[in-house]
């Protein structure tokens, strides 16, 4: 039997090959046939989840709640020391110096990454901005969000902090950070679906020992991670509760 693995579409483009290498490594270590399917858009990912096609997923925290509550997924591991953060950025020449300066009908550029958008919109709340009184500019990726700012097509942009940090120096020079979130408790997680759950302990063991494995360390490096750390069930429940409080 072959299983399907996927990665939340907000993965950094330069890590794409890393995920394929990881999948090859994981197949060898677990002796399971696992096919990696990458989706470019959340819409496609959510259709695959709804059709119960996915067995293993590096999931966005926004999707984690649905995967646990509706699809019976369980957490395995998270990248050690990593958390999801968002940035509100403006054009470096913008006269906006504080979120409180923003007014209704502000043009806000963002991607379809749901947790980054959620964190970003929370950071815009102090200006009384919400989905109903902004002009949204949905962009295909974080670089295009930055370009909307440079061209003056957007007043503010919501960007995944990691993606912002990886923008070229040239781009960053023309942008300014208005707010960087310091939430620390929201993170992506590698999760295992019902068809593979009899092997949950094996997978967890393999992954937790990965950084000490001769080849595993290099594979982690290709993903930009130092090691995996275990996610306890209660830890996942806590993050789901947290997302629930934020999603209002």
């Amino acid at each position: 039997m072959s299983y399907m693995f996927t990665v939340s579409p907000d993965f950094a483009p330069d890590r794409l090959s890393g995920w394929y290498i990881f999948n090859t490594w994981l197949q060898k270590q677990s002796a399971e046939a696992i096919h990696l399917e990458m989706y470019n858009h959340y819409h496609d990912l959510h259709q695959a989840i709804a059709a119960d096609k996915i067995d293993l997923i590096y999931a966005n925290p926004f999707d984690a709640a649905m995967l646990v509550r509706e699809k019976g997924f369980l957490p395995l591991v998270r990248a050690k020391g990593e958390s999801d953060e968002a940035i509100i950025a403006v054009n470096a020449d913008s006269n906006i110096n504080d979120v409180a300066d923003l007014k209704p009908n502000t043009r806000v550029a963002f991607t379809d990454d749901p947790d980054v958008r959620l964190m970003g919109m929370i950071m815009l709340e102090p200006a009384d901005l919400h989905a109903g009184n902004i002009i949204p500019l949905l962009s295909d990726n974080h670089v295009l969000v930055a370009k909307h700012l440079l061209k003056g097509e957007a007043d503010v942009g919501i960007i995944l902090a990691e993606a912002y940090d990886n923008l070229s120096g040239m781009l960053k020079k023309q942008l300014r950070i208005l707010v960087r979130s310091q939430i620390s408790v929201i993170y992506h997680s590698l999760m295992i679906g019902p068809r593979l759950q009899s092997r949950r302990d094996d997978f967890q063991k393999i992954l937790l020992e990965m950084d000490r494995d001769e080849k595993g360390g290099g594979v982690l490096n290709a993903l930009g991670f130092s090691a995996w750390q275990r996610i306890e069930d209660e830890e996942m429940e806590f993050m789901i509760d947290l997302m629930d409080t934020l999603n209002t």
Binding site: E125, P126, F238, D241, L242, T245, L246
Partner: peptide, 9 residues
């Protein structure tokens, strides 16, 4: 669980 965020003025 209680989560607090910045309110608007």
């Amino acid at each position: 669980t209680s989560v607090r965020r910045k309110p608007s003025r």
